[in-house]
């Protein structure tokens, strides 16, 4: 390895999942992080924390710190703590439940009011595999997303359709370059693995 080895371009963002209970927030995260799906997932308690890194095209690594909040009413008071300084939010609704879209809209309004002004919001419709029971048309949700300047996807955590897309599209929207620049400017001294050892031969024999 040469000394001119380029410093790996790395950025880290806080992401929060919001939405009504049982729309599949945890399933989406597990599909994204562990690429697994559990038919009988128990409902989340409080908020779960997971991380996942993705590689973008231009040699950039983006790490998501994901806070998967519980959708139940009981844990409503926790949400503000997690979206307060989040860089991006995935607001999930269930395409087979019209009411869940309404709840998602409420979350979006709350985010626009309370969260960071430059937060990236992705409106995500889950359970695409249950196309037959669809209640929310793609057009309606998409129109709402366009009107409010949100990203919009429809995904299926069960089949894995579109899951990675959501996170990649979010990563494209995020101010990756800015963060890399700011970390570079205050970059910590890095350890040079090629440096010759400073240990002298004297001393301890072990």
């Amino acid at each position: 390895m040469s000394i001119e080895d380029p410093i790996p371009r790395f950025a880290q963002f806080k992401l929060v999942l919001l939405g009504e209970s049982a729309v599949g927030k945890s399933s989406i995260v597990h599909r994204f992080v562990k690429d697994s799906f559990d038919d009988l997932r128990e409902s989340t308690i409080g908020a779960a924390f997971l991380t996942q890194t993705i590689k973008l095209a231009n040699d950039t690594t983006v790490k998501f710190e994901i806070w998967d909040t519980a959708g139940q009413e009981r844990y409503k008071s926790l949400a503000p703590m997690y979206y307060r300084n989040a860089n991006c939010a995935v607001v999930v609704y269930d395409i087979t439940q019209l009411a869940s879209l309404e709840r998602a809209k409420n979350w979006i309004k709350e985010l626009q009011r309370q969260a960071n002004a430059d937060i990236t919001i992705a409106l995500t419709g889950n359970k695409l595999d249950l196309e037959a029971e669809r209640e929310v048309s793609t057009g309606e949700a998409q129109q709402y997303a366009i009107d409010n300047g949100l990203l919009f996807c429809e995904v299926s955590a069960k089949t894995g359709d579109g899951i990675r897309d959501v996170f990649y599209r979010i990563a494209e929207q995020l101010p990756v370059e800015e963060q890399i620049r700011s970390t570079m400017s205050r970059s910590k001294p890095r350890i040079n693995l090629n440096k010759p050892s400073t240990n002298t031969d004297q001393g301890c024999a072990c």
Binding site: I45, G46, A47, A48, F49, T51, E65, R74, S77
Partner: peptide, 30 residues
Amino acid sequence: ELMVYREQMFLIGEMIDTAKKQRRFDEIPP
């Protein structure tokens, strides 16, 4: 509300323990 927060504190405490056990130290600061 207080109960929910305390529950969450307990959960986070557990998460920290697990992260330490599984050597995922990067998860500990957040």
